[in-house]
Design a binder for these strands. Structure first.
Lengths: 570, 570
DNA sequence: TAATAAGGTCACTAGGTCAA
DNA sequence: TTGACCTAGTGACCTTATTA
């Protein structure tokens, strides 16, 4: 469900309405409609009338146009921000993380379904309902429940921005509700860790700025909150994750693993350093944001509504979290490790260090300890620590700036990365690609015939390829759809023909990749293969198919090649 | 934060937007985005529309795409120039200086953070804001504060070019705004010392050109400006650095050491002599540049904007400087010594002689004397002492300036200049490289498996990996984070296993480094080894880790591989 | 030969357009 | 008003050129 097929959207669903995402817009995966809506509304708040339902409207595909106020609110809650926008090609890391996320989500969804049938997690029904409204349908909801790979803010915002990068104005906008949410947050169940981790992004620095603010501001909203958490997020966080911001306020629910444990790998700090994966949110358009924030605030400033929302959210959060957290703890550890590894390999940024507070560090260390490879894990933990520290510094600096500029805020967040349910899902998908060794397709391209229309839109002029892209359109997504179907629930491998075709493509790609790999191997070293294998295993479910398609796409870029290599090895 | 992880970028941040730098492009460390932007814009000024904010836009990661005019302006201000471009491998000197710079920045950042927490330097908040906008987030800001290894022009241009090498046209472009900025520069906080020293470069001569101009032109804008500073930069410098252009106007901030003291080694003159290191910047495309300059001028010619910008920037700058300067004073001394040593070994240029004052000479001799391990430590202590003395003098001078400028307060920091927690951190890291004598890895290579993504980016062609990228992201920085974490505060050493792992990594890196060193030795001369040792000792903290990571980064995929490994284990 | 940056390619998004 | 489609950029990745 989630992965509808937007090649460029990486099979993501719109975090606002649950429809297949057309891409990553303004800091979140969204459909074209929500993208356009946000883009229009952000600069024209006056056009948004007050919600007639106390701002409690549930936004989904069908009713997303019913209440503009709630739709915009949802947009903000999932991390959308004018400053959160990013341009350019998605980094491979981002892609990888997206794939992992998918897996996790699927796993989560499966788990959730199972639990619900069994009886559901405590508060589950209520929470579930809420989650659905928040995120979207099933997969989205599941993802949300899990925290979207450890991302707190609705599970969305945090995911891609290491916490959505928000301008102060945006935060204000969110914060307006924050008051209302704060009440809810205080509820034990409400507390969530907003760790954000985004595989992407331009916002590495943002986290820092925010973090500093957090220290100051957070105290009020969520005392004891990890420094790395964002103030804003923490404050309004609708779907709090245990252990993150609110830990101090109230101990995290027992059922939920500490946030830091959940997805340490995704800690913003880590990604911050990491190029590409976790970029901090931009603080653009601060003034504009301020205006918008005021308007938004106006829309949602009703105290009663706040209280109501607070209550509402509280239940929602807890159930989801519960289910997800418990189930995914193991999964999380995997991703955590991966992230840690990646981080360690790359270079820990000062921010990460900063972000990781004693708590985080601790958690990290804990995570690290039980790891497969001691070395890797270790490295990760260190890195994370280092990053955290740096972030703190930045935050401090940022705080100064913040003093000057009310608007600035970026920051990031923490990340909780979750490990996707690899084993089962992976296995299923793995078969799909005739060759297990399908390289992970890092490229978002829609290779095959699938995404004909979409990819073309943009670059048609230049490249006739139908590659990628766009997926927002259903048509192109066919290939993805296949992948998704396989991953999520379709155990069924669409057709052999397709698979074979994919395999063929993969082979071609693989060859290319191999060439690259060979050249690279010297660079990458032997370990890369093992890594690739593992990744592939993790990603096999959804990723394998995606990869194939992507790779098939016309352009075997190096990334593709690499991906292919990985798959080949696998 | 600063050191995001680009192995090839030496953990530098983009001088334009603050994002992790991808490399040294067109005369400055920049990210891929700013590189591409500059490359595109330079030849297509018509595509750049006028700034809607009087050219006062603050450029950072988040908003860098918001105003092309200001982005381009920033690019020029940080020293980017088509004529400043260069190809080929980086010289060891360049690398060394970059490493040192990193350390300083880290130290500064730490200091700044500490100071801020404590209460922050006077005027800090304001200043910080400025810095951010200029340089970027934390690290950049810190670097800026320090003067980027003694480089005045925004800390950027000067740093790498001894003043960025600019064609006349480019200078014109910059100069256009100069008038506006001059007003701002006059602000006390704005004054910065422009000492220039670039480890690299193509621009050795550029500084000269400028300097002459400065004498004449500068007088008006910033009398007393150091001769080596460039006129253009000084004139328009939006984010002036104490001591640079404005020094005459007002005495350089106490916190900043005299430019000559800061990094004598980097003085362009010195590098000029140095083989290949200091190449004069080409003045190619002058005509083209002239055209561009005209266009740019048109964009920013509003006088009012200048005034406004001046005010704005002033506040921002001061804080950063304070933090950085104080903290890094010791660091500076270290670098200073190193530079001196290197200079002595290589071929001392007349300039060097001039630069090295009696104190400096003393310090240098001291440093030189003791070598290897015991020597290393000794040297450090001495250096720190020497630095302090020098700093005091500087401070006195700065104090005078302070009297003039209310904003200055940063000085304190300078004085405090803290040495980075070398001992502990160093020790921790030191072990890492089984051999204490780890040679400093002058090569930028991403050797090990660690920093997969970063190193790969560039050479991907060679390596097929899909990796990386992104790193701006967090991943690459992991190693750095580690280093930092160790240094700064993370008491917690994650796990022994991790440490060992790191050590292992370090060893690998070291080996690589050794290889490089060996090769370099012939080049560097016999003393080079001792120097290297010393340098290593100094840099062990952050550099060793960074190096490792960087080396590891080589293959982005490596990170992936690591991840896979983890997954496998899991 | 390795390192490293310029330049090119093209994945990918912000915005704009316009039929529905 | 909405949202599918298009255009203009952006920037991640790759290739080529140049230097150590």
């Amino acid at each position: 469900m989630m992965n509808q097929d937007n090649p460029y959207a990486m099979n993501q669903t719109c975090k606002v309405c649950g429809e297949p995402a057309a891409g990553f817009h303004f800091g979140a995966f969204t459909c074209e409609g929500c993208k356009s809506f946000f883009g229009r509304s952000y600069n024209n708040l006056s056009s948004i009338s007050d919600c007639k339902n106390n701002g409690e409207c549930i936004i989904n595909k069908k009713n997303r146009t019913a209440c503009k106020a709630c739709r915009l609110k949802k947009c903000l809650m999932v991390g959308m921000s004018k400053s959160g926008s990013r341009y350019g090609r998605r980094s491979n890391w981002f892609k990888i993380h997206c794939l992992l996320q998918e897996q996790q989500q699927q796993a989560v969804a499966a788990m959730a379904a199972h639990h619900q049938q069994a009886g559901g997690p405590p508060g589950g029904a209520t929470a579930n309902g809420c989650m659905k409204s928040m995120a979207a349908p099933s997969s989205a909801a599941a993802a949300t429940a899990l925290g979207m790979l450890g991302h707190a803010t609705g599970g969305y915002a945090g995911l891609y921005g290491g916490g959505p990068a928000r301008s102060k104005e945006e935060l204000m906008m969110l914060g307006l509700d924050a008051a209302a949410y704060d009440a809810g947050i205080k509820h034990p169940s409400l507390v969530a860790s907003p760790s954000v981790s985004s595989p992407d992004s331009h916002n590495s620095d943002s986290s820092v700025e925010v973090s500093s603010k957090q220290a100051t501001d957070a105290a009020g909203a969520a005392p004891g909150r990890p420094p790395h958490l964002r103030k804003e997020l923490t404050t309004f966080l609708p779907l709090p994750f245990p252990g993150l911001g609110s830990m101090p306020v109230m101990p995290p629910p027992a059922f939920l693993p500490p946030s830091h444990l959940l997805f340490p790998g995704y800690h913003p700090a880590l990604y911050t350093h990491h190029q590409g994966l976790l970029k901090p949110t931009p603080e653009q358009q601060q003034q504009q944001a301020a205006v918008a924030a005021a308007a938004v605030q106006h829309l949602f400033n009703s105290s009663n509504a706040a209280a109501a929302s607070g209550q509402r959210y509280a239940p929602q959060l807890s159930p989801n979290h519960n289910n997800n957290s418990s189930q995914q703890s193991t999964e999380l550890s995997k991703r955590f490790y991966l992230d840690a590894v990646l981080k360690s390999q790359q270079a820990p940024s000062p921010l990460a260090t900063k972000l990781s507070t004693s708590k985080q560090d601790y958690s990290i260390s804990a995570l690290v300890t039980p790891n497969s490879e001691s070395g890797r894990e270790r490295v990760k933990s260190r890195q994370s620590n280092g990053e955290l520290e740096e972030e703190e510094q930045q935050q401090q600096e940022e705080q100064q700036q913040a003093a000057q500029q009310a608007n600035e805020e970026e920051e990031e967040d923490l990340v909780v990365s979750m490990t996707p349910p690899c084993s089962p899902a992976t296995e299923q998908q793995a078969p799909t690609p005739a060759h297990q060794d399908n390289p992970i397709d890092l490229s978002m391209k829609t290779t095959g015939s699938n995404s004909s229309s979409q990819s073309h839109r943009r670059r048609r002029s230049s490249s006739s390829n139908s590659d990628d892209d766009d997926g927002s359109d259903a048509g192109s997504s066919s290939s993805q759809a296949e992948a998704q179907s396989e991953q999520q629930e379709q155990p069924l491998h669409i057709t052999t023909a397709e698979d074979s075709a994919e395999a063929h493509n993969n082979n071609n790609n693989n060859n290319i990749n191999n060439n690259n790999n060979n050249s690279n191997k010297s660079d990458n070293e032997p370990s890369s293969e093992s890594i690739k294998r593992k990744l592939n295993a993790l990603l096999q479910e959804s990723s394998s198919q995606k990869r194939q398609r992507l790779e098939q796409c016309a352009t075997p870029t190096k990334a593709h090649a690499a991906a292919l290599d990985l798959t080949n090895k696998v």
